[in-house]
Design a binder for these strands. Structure first.
Lengths: 118, 118
DNA sequence: CAGGATCCAAGTGGATACTG
DNA sequence: CAGTATCCACTTGGATCCTG
């Protein structure tokens, strides 16, 4: 139980920082968002859904999300290979929040488009 | 009205990406969080609340939040100077989400501390 | 199909010193 | 008190080519 001596300080930094490390970055939010819409997506589907992401970044981001237990990677040992990604239970807990953020973001974008109120 | 031709593509990238650009980064979440707890904070108070942030980053982050209209900067022209920061209406809209994220993050941290369930 | 490897550019954050 | 300014290290992300 020696771990207990090092973590409390992390907690004082508050969950907000922790959470942002988990879902921050350029693509994590969007990947979680699309997984929440489609339930299950293959690697190639994700790649087509987010055309601006390179294979390197897509792979790297998916690995991080998997290591953080936010998504589940299911490999089918077939030829050609097939890999499916879906949200874990922990990842699912983030969806209400991602939805909220999405709506907020859309609203801001629309306000930027129609700056007629000031 | 020529703007209308360039933004739709931004929207298709979905609000999630936009929102993460606005509140991503190493300190924005925590600053918003603390402003939501205290309503109003001076520069020095923020600095003491987040001891790990340098003045450069604190100033820079506050400027970005202000430019994005998420916080309000109120200067008092006194000697010594006094500056107060608070959430804007738009920034306030993010608080439910920041709270949600905070709770989620705390829970994750506690689970990491007590991995007795698997 | 689903990546892995490598190299490089840009961005982000830190240390330190100084100021109205 | 509330910042600026400068220089530097590290991290993140992109381009390109290759593979089981």
């Amino acid at each position: 139980m020696k771990i207990k001596s090092e973590i409390p300080e992390c907690i004082k930094k508050c969950g907000v920082e922790y959470a942002f490390k988990r879902i921050g970055g350029k693509y994590k939010g969007r990947i979680l968002w699309h997984l929440s819409l489609k339930t299950v997506l293959r690697y190639g589907e994700l790649s087509r859904t987010l055309p601006d992401i390179t294979t390197k970044m897509l792979t790297q981001t998916l690995r991080e999300l998997e290591d953080d237990k936010l998504i589940i990677r299911k490999m089918y040992h077939e030829v050609p290979p097939k890999v499916e990604y879906s949200l874990s239970d922990t990842g699912l807990e983030l969806i209400p929040f991602i939805n909220y953020l999405h709506n907020w973001g859309q609203k801001q974008l629309e306000n930027e488009l129609l700056p007629n109120e000031h």
